[in-house]
Design a protein around this nucleic acid. Structure first.
Lengths: 158, 158
DNA sequence: CACCCTCTGACCATCTTTGACTTTTGACTA
DNA sequence: TAGTCAAAAGTCAAAGATGGTCAGAGGGTG
């Protein structure tokens, strides 16, 4: 194997495969020690090899008893719908309630979001909910909708 | 288990579950001795794990015959849950990710929100999603969470 | 040679553990 | 009754334990 990152990647994938559950919990320091590298190397491996697009979710906790949890997830098959909607989000400067609604309806039609979930998001992003952020309304909507799209990239969100 | 705080948390929740009543009374010193930690560790566990938004009430008395009483709040009406959480929203000035998470978990426990919906809202309100609104983060969270509660009130026939 | 990965380490953020010091309470005593 | 004392529990800040970030150095490949 060429480099240590590849080795660590293979190791983690092996452990993941052998574990019954579809997730593993590691201690950054332990892995770093095992492969005699600096701890931040582990972050590098995770950031480059265990991304959402590749079907992995990573959570972690700092402090005493900290850990890094890597989870295998199933990617949603309608990635193209998501990318086209993300494009819309970047092109449109005025993300009005109407536009938000259209996007959410589309997601429901594509069966990527349930009716109830769409309602929920719609209300959170409504003019009323953001009435104290008139200035940043569009920006907030864009960020939150983009966050939503990222979540929908894999099934069972979260 | 990762750390002593988690262990103590689990222990207390177990005792709480096994007790007939919905409350337990402990002696701080006893618990500290049982888990071989300093007494103030117990305060830490209580302050971080048995908070109001998580649905616990804690009372205590010092001096001879002192105690700490932990009560699981039993709310019979969904309305009560929502009002008490709305109160938390108004009282807490720093609506951190952690607090948002606690509230959402609570709503799921009370079966007012589905797991996936909670995940969704959590991510929409995350530090990352609001990274361009560092100043207004808490305000936006408050407004959107209040909007969510209003919606849930409506759903539950309020 | 240029460019793209990798690797490293200094510095940061967050959560936990510990202990010194404070406050409250009730019993005992003058 | 007031004062004293010991037995709780509370507070807070420092230290400890992890993980995260980022920019720059290092190295391999077209």
């Amino acid at each position: 194997m060429r480099n240590i990152s590849d080795v660590i990647e293979q190791y983690l994938k092996q452990v993941l495969k052998e574990s019954q559950a579809n997730s593993i919990e590691i201690k950054r320091q332990d892995i770093a020690q095992r492969f005699e590298c600096v701890p931040s190397q582990i972050n590098y491996v995770i950031n480059t090899r265990f991304t959402v697009e590749k079907g992995y979710l990573v959570e972690s906790k700092r402090g005493g008893g900290g850990y890094i949890r890597i989870r295998r997830v199933i990617l949603h098959e309608k990635q193209d719908v998501l990318s086209s909607l993300m494009e819309v989000l970047h092109e449109q400067s005025r993300l009005t309630e109407q536009l938000v609604e259209n996007i959410l309806i589309r997601l429901v039609e594509e069966q990527m979001l349930q009716e109830r979930e769409a309602q929920l998001v719609y209300h959170l992003l409504s003019d009323e909910a953001l009435s104290f952020q008139v200035e940043d309304r569009y920006l907030i909507r864009r960020q939150q909708l983009l966050t939503l799209m990222k979540l929908l990239r894999y099934r069972n969100g979260g």
